[in-house]
Amino acid sequence: MQQIPMTIKGAELLRAELEELKNVKRPQITAAIAEARAHGDLKENAEYHAAREQQGFCEGRIQEIEGKLAQAQIIDITKMKNTGRVIFGSTVTVLNLDTDEEITYRIVGDDEADFKQNLISVNSPIARGLIGKEIDDTVSINTPGGEVEFDILKVEYI
């Protein structure tokens, strides 16, 4: 079984979502099914069918989250010794040599990634190009937008 790297925050968010699904959503859906069932004929009962569909989505998501948490390799980046090397969980400040734009990325697991918040997946082209590199390294990364060169300015383990 392959382990999935995940930050502590990412694991906490998944656990919170799982709690919400099991303790809030699931009982609401069960109640909605019971209420719709009380209306009579189930063959033409749209409320019943909608509630059953919702139940399927909810149960599927519960199983998905439980599977991810079971396979998670939770990494506490704050306990790592800062060597200046880019690793999973580190926060990296780079200078785009084409645009002279300074950008800060945090390398996280797939479920935590949000490019708008500069949280990039460990499996993204940028993260794969940065991992293993050190401060002052120049990295050429093949992105969907073309070849981009970055200078690594700062690496933090926060």
Rank of each mutant, 00 (worst) to 15 (best):
M1K: 13
Q2R: 13
Q2G: 08
I4S: 01
P5H: 05
P5Q: 06
M6R: 07
T7N: 09
T7W: 03
I8D: 08
K9T: 13
L13I: 12
L14E: 11
R15G: 07
L18F: 00
E19L: 12
E20L: 09
L21G: 05
L21W: 01
K22Y: 03
N23Q: 12
V24P: 05
V24I: 12
V24D: 01
K25L: 01
K25N: 04
R26P: 00
Q28G: 03
I29C: 00
I33W: 00
I33T: 03
I33R: 03
I33Q: 02
A34Q: 05
A36L: 11
A36N: 08
H39W: 10
H39L: 15
G40R: 07
E44I: 11
N45K: 10
N45M: 09
H49A: 13
A50V: 09
A51D: 00
A51N: 04
R52G: 02
E53I: 01
Q54I: 04
Q55L: 11
Q55I: 03
F57T: 03
E59W: 02
G60N: 06
G60E: 05
G60K: 02
G60H: 07
I62P: 02
Q63E: 05
Q63V: 03
E64K: 05
E64P: 01
E64R: 02
E64C: 01
I65P: 06
G67F: 02
K68M: 13
L69R: 09
A70R: 13
A70W: 01
I74S: 10
D76W: 11
T78Y: 08
T78Q: 14
K79W: 01
G84R: 08
I87G: 08
F88M: 10
G89N: 08
G89F: 05
V92C: 09
V94N: 06
L97C: 10
L97S: 04
D98N: 13
D98F: 09
D98G: 12
D100I: 00
D100N: 14
E101F: 08
E102V: 14
E102S: 11
Y105I: 12
I107D: 05
I107F: 09
V108Y: 00
G109D: 00
G109H: 04
D111K: 10
D111A: 13
D111G: 13
D114H: 14
D114E: 14
D114A: 11
F115A: 15
F115K: 14
L119H: 10
L119A: 06
I120F: 08
I120Y: 11
S121A: 13
S121Y: 07
S121K: 09
S124F: 06
R128Q: 10
R128F: 00
R128C: 04
G129E: 03
G129D: 03
L130G: 04
I131D: 02
G132D: 02
E134L: 04
D136C: 06
D137Q: 00
D137Y: 07
T138L: 06
S140L: 14
S140A: 14
T143M: 14
G146D: 08
G146I: 08
E147Y: 10
V148D: 09
F150E: 10
F150I: 15
D151L: 15
I152Q: 03
L153M: 15
K154F: 12
V155M: 11
E156M: 13
